[in-house]
Amino acid sequence: MEILVCIKRVPDTSENEIEVNRDGTDIERDDLVYSVNEWDNYAVEEAIQIRDKVGGSVTVVSVGDEEAEEVLRRQMAMGADKGVLLSDDAFEGSDGKGLATILKAEVEKGNYDLILTGAQADDGAGQVGGMLAAMLDWPCASLVNFIEVVDDKKIKVGREIAGGNQEMYEVDLPCVLSIQTGINEPRYVGIRGIRKVASIKIPVHGTGDLGIAPEAVGEPGAKTKRLDYFVPELGEGAEILEGSTDEIIDKLIEFLKAKGGIK
């Protein structure tokens, strides 16, 4: 099975406090810790497990600047066979459709049976997988938390729905799946693994290589554009308890008693 996994380099929200910069044009990016998008990491692990079971190869691809190479390399250290970076000044400011357009061009250069994306990334949009499938006219399933290869024509997938329940489908190949967290337990990637793949060359494809008209992507092609970042003023929020830990606990215990929080 030839598998392509689309990945993104994002600020790690569990490691960072995200703040808006002074003029609201961006988040404060100095000192941010970046990593591969959590959902994508599960997608790569799943791809590797499928390949190890039925054979084939795993390619990881990212649209981004040269810094995205670091996450491609990390996922290659994890076990992906190849990495491709899609990078061009013309890609900057792409909306979901722009990103799907770029990825589609790369998909068409290969011979893939299965494309995985994360269910969503740092912008919470969850759009690229579904758009890519629609452009390719391939079947699609989102929020996938189970995959079983039936044969070389079809797979069985589970989709996560409300209440911890799961929808099961049979899907014809080739198809696009967006992967939900928890589908597997992604393996650990050590510094030694990363060193091993450090010298592998990662090809970079731009508009020319992909045969994309620059105005179809990036800022000019985008129908949905981000204007600014801000922190909303939302009501009063919580009453923050202050003082020494002892004083805070005193106050908290009073609240707990009053509200039935101690039985």
Binding site: K97, G126, A134, A141, L143, E160
Partner: peptide, 23 residues
């Protein structure tokens, strides 16, 4: 924007050639 909408909507925007504004 729930598990059903996330499954339906992105592809629908492509097929309708419409702008997509998620969540």
């Amino acid at each position: 924007h729930d598990h059903f909408g996330m499954d339906l909507a992105p592809g629908l925007s492509i097929k309708l050639d419409a702008a997509y504004l998620p969540d």
